[in-house]
Design a binder for these strands. Structure first.
Lengths: 342, 342
DNA sequence: CGCATCTTTTGGAGCGCTCCAAACGAGAGT
DNA sequence: ACTCTCGTTTGGAGCGCTCCAAAAGATGCG
């Protein structure tokens, strides 16, 4: 009995629905029906099939199902960089929105596969995914076959032809954050610009708020990067060039971290001497060490909406592309406070 | 001509090798050979086929290839949590080791799919991956069909029957870090314990070093978590209970961040009043804000080794399971220094 | 009791590819 | 010219499943 399981009864190839059918005393079609959860199967047969599956340790072949059926029940998600954690809740929201429909998610890091595939989508297209979520800045290379549902998530800038778009209103979010600083009494506020479309919108929102308050010449600095290094460099220049600066808005939380470092090196305490506001409300912002005031892009909702948009394409394939803009929310923590009276 | 490309010539279904074959004036088999880069194809035909593919915007069907061929050329990677960034370089190393062999990677976050599938591996098994990299604490539920190459990476604790193991020597790494603190002159050193097998080894390494130095009763604290919160809580208790503590070793960088916060709240400067050493050498450790002394687990090499192990199974399927232990390296930054003379 | 109606079950065709054995064509050797 | 290679190309079978149309049972009603 011992080695039996391992050696002698091993059929070399994994069991198929035919094996299951034989073991359960039904036809292969019935097994397929059970597999897909059809309601037209009697309870008796269903349990018989299920038991046979368990007994044989049967695993359905996704490849065969995909080839035979029209659908893979898989949505491909293109990420730009695993290191930018904003996608985590996006994924979560997407996952939860998709699961009830029996869809799964396949993730791919854009930069990781950059060298391998001609287009970042090739892998997914070869897989014949039923839909795509683009959570990167869309590029020219992202040509998509007509009829494939695509949602650009978290980025309202780039365009994939015919794709739906869902994102937080970054311009509005940056305005919220800047107004928060204005209300606290800050008048000399710097901005650490990032790169990409979202960063541009955030810079615009920053300017909007300052313009409305009739504040002249806001200082914005950045080298087109989004890392902690970039934030550190930009903040250093702002602080050195304008020592009277009392607050800084960063294009994201990671850059805000760099700003905190730059402040620390100059002996400036946060928030007493300098207020720092981030963007994204990433897990980092909530840490004891940073306690960073930040803007929540509501990525879970973005993901959930992406799921809805994707699923709705199934019923109305030809509807016009939809753009959904969610309102971001300011999360006030300990890194922002009124400026010191001069 | 304009709308031609979009509407009229659209064959409704994506082109197959038959379409390509017809367009190129060859047989479907020849197209298949080109697809797989066979050397037995004349240059003339090859270019003809390639051109036809480009003209038709042909995409090979992964499903069909997987079903017909014996192999998917895909390795599944099981991650535990996208938020723990240690896996990033692991993935990179794996990717680079696999690419020359024409293998791709499919990633799945264990916790994300926890509710959906019965076993975290089901999705991959349904895909018929050619191999598996388990970058989580292996669990009982991870039963794997005999003959499927599996490598447990980054974790030498749990066992998947028959699987190779490649990991950094965490015990040694923690000893390195602790010896570094001892050499600096620290005598009262605390340890923030994490959870899981790796964390246990790190705690052992910590004790090893202290034992060798004949230092009594090291203080280790932790609630079985690995987050910044957990690090903050553990460090708080250590500092409050033992005010003479001059150095702390954290089970990972994130927890070290919590320790920095706890120190800051108590007016302790790092490294002047308290040395803090992390583990993992994550991107966070290198930031200007933290400048954290940490232990590099050499995850890129771990990934590369995993790739090698996987590929070697192709030539010697029945070789005994191999365990590779890499030596971690201490990365000294600004968060550790000699203690203040008392 | 027979026939129409509904539910459950079934065999066959085919998805797009790979693999294999066999066919083909062009030199080389006799 | 004819056979024998060798390198290249080809059709056929089949991978494991889904979909479809049609068969088989079950149920109801006159």
């Amino acid at each position: 009995m011992e080695d039996n399981a391992v050696v002698s009864s091993a059929p070399k190839h994994p069991p198929t629905i035919y094996d299951v059918a034989q073991a359960a005393g039904v036809s292969k079609s019935l097994v397929s029906l059970v597999l897909r959860g059809s309601p037209h199967v009697s309870e008796a047969r269903r349990t018989a099939v299920l038991q046979a599956m368990a007994r044989l340790d049967y695993r359905p072949s996704h490849a065969a199902a995909a080839l035979a059926g029209a659908t893979t029940r898989t949505i491909g998600v293109v990420l730009d960089d695993f290191r930018n954690l904003w996608f985590v809740s996006l994924l979560q929201g997407l996952q939860e929105g998709l699961a009830p429909h029996g869809f799964r998610i396949a993730v791919s890091d854009h930069t990781l596969n950059a060298h391998v595939e001609a287009s970042p989508l090739d892998g997914f297209l070869a897989m014949r995914v039923d839909g795509l979520v683009v959570a990167t800045e869309p590029t020219e290379a992202m040509r998509v076959p007509a009829g494939l549902p695509v949602v650009v998530a978290g980025n309202r800038q780039g365009t994939v032809p015919g794709a739906d778009v869902v994102a937080a209103d970054d311009r509005h979010g940056a305005r919220l954050a800047t107004e928060h600083l204005l209300e606290l009494g800050h008048r000399r506020i710097g901005h650490l610009t990032g790169s990409g479309g979202a960063a541009r919108l955030r810079a615009e929102g920053f300017r909007d708020a300052l313009d409305r308050a009739d504040l002249p010449s806001p200082v914005a600095r950045g080298h087109g990067g989004t890392t902690e290094q970039d934030g550190y460099a930009a903040a250093s220049r702002i602080l050195d060039d304008g020592p009277a600066t009392t607050a800084v808005l960063a294009a994201n939380d990671t850059m805000a971290m760099g700003a905190l470092a730059a402040a620390g090196e100059r002996g400036l305490r946060v928030p007493e001497d300098l207020s720092v506001v981030g963007y994204d409300d990433s897990p980092m912002a909530a840490t004891h060490l940073l306690r960073l005031t930040s803007v929540d892009g509501r990525n879970a909702e973005v993901g959930a909406t992406a799921a809805e948009l994707l699923m709705s394409r199934a019923t109305e394939p030809d509807r016009a592309a939809r753009r959904t803009l969610l309102s971001p929310a300011l999360v006030v923590r300990a890194s922002s406070a009124p400026p010191r009276p001069a």
